[in-house]
């Protein structure tokens, strides 16, 4: 099996993207078994092993491609159901999305079970603004006679939606173009915030300014406030290990 040799796990410092000359870093996130690796292979021309079972990708994989003369580094993250990680590989995905500041995050979702997949999309939308929804497995959705109004979906979520069937190469050019547009700020996604019950919203309103004071805007202060209210120890741990004096990671 080539997995071991082919996979290169890079340390986070390789992904700093504050310099415009550096390639844009694109994260591929999504629930397990939605075809992230297939999209990864299709875009990069690489040959990561793909398989029809959840949990196939346990390591972070990266590859690159060039579109319109611009270089993109694509990072294939392990599948995750939520950003409240329950396992080591979910933590890998969460930490990358939160602390490596990819230029764009593409959430790959299974069009045949949109509702469950949207949970992750909504959560990632709380972390980053630079978000694209990739509605994959559209061929299967059609086979199952599902009709998805992706314009409405895009408006409701506040982010661009691209329909793809990566196995047949359908919609991939549209995806490349959309990534390019978001990277170059021709499209500005504005993820619709989730509304929480009044007691939570009140607490957020108090905490959010204080968080902003400490951390600035790099991480969405509203989301950090929520993590604090939820007492998310694993997030706090990862946050501290991402600080510069912890050795590796990104400057805040």
């Amino acid at each position: 099996m080539p997995i071991i040799n082919a996979v290169r796990v890079l340390s986070d410092k390789n992904f700093k993207s504050d310099c415009t000359k550096k390639p844009a870093v694109i994260a591929l996130a999504g629930n397990p078994n939605t075809g992230k690796s297939t999209i990864f292979n299709a875009l990069t021309g690489m040959r990561q092993h793909t398989g029809n079972w959840p949990g196939k990708t346990v390591l972070r994989t990266q590859g690159q491609y060039i579109y319109n003369g611009q270089k993109y580094v694509l990072v294939d993250l392990p599948g995750t159901y939520s950003l409240l990680p329950h396992s080591a590989e979910e933590e890998v995905a969460r930490d990358f999305l939160c602390f490596s500041y990819p230029d764009v995050t593409v959430v790959v979702v299974d069009a045949t079970c949109l509702e469950r997949n949207l949970n992750l999309v909504l959560q990632i939308g709380e972390v980053t603004r630079q978000l694209i929804l990739c509605l994959n497995l559209m061929d299967e959705a059609r086979r199952k006679n599902l009709i998805i109004d992706s314009d409405l979906l895009s408006r409701r979520l506040g982010i661009p939606v691209v329909e793809t069937a990566a196995r047949n190469g359908e919609g991939l050019n549209q995806l490349r173009q959309t990534i390019c547009d978001v990277v170059n700020h021709r499209i500005t996604p504005v993820p619709t915030p989730i509304t929480y019950p009044p007691d939570l919203e009140q607490a957020i309103a108090i905490l959010e300014p204080q968080v902003r004071q400490i951390m600035g805007e790099r991480l969405n202060p509203r989301w950090v406030a929520l993590r604090l209210i939820a007492g998310d120890q694993s997030f706090i741990r990862s946050f501290f290990s991402s600080l510069p004096d912890a050795g590796e990671g990104v400057k805040l």
Partner: peptide, 29 residues
């Protein structure tokens, strides 16, 4: 500040997210 138990807050957060996802999915699919 929040006066909420962390576990309860987590539940409440997760519920809101699920509810929103459900609503959007019903409208669009």
């Amino acid at each position: 500040i929040s006066g909420l138990e962390p576990a309860k807050a987590t539940d409440s957060i997760v519920q809101s997210i699920y509810h929103t996802a459900q609503k959007i999915a019903r409208e669009t699919v």
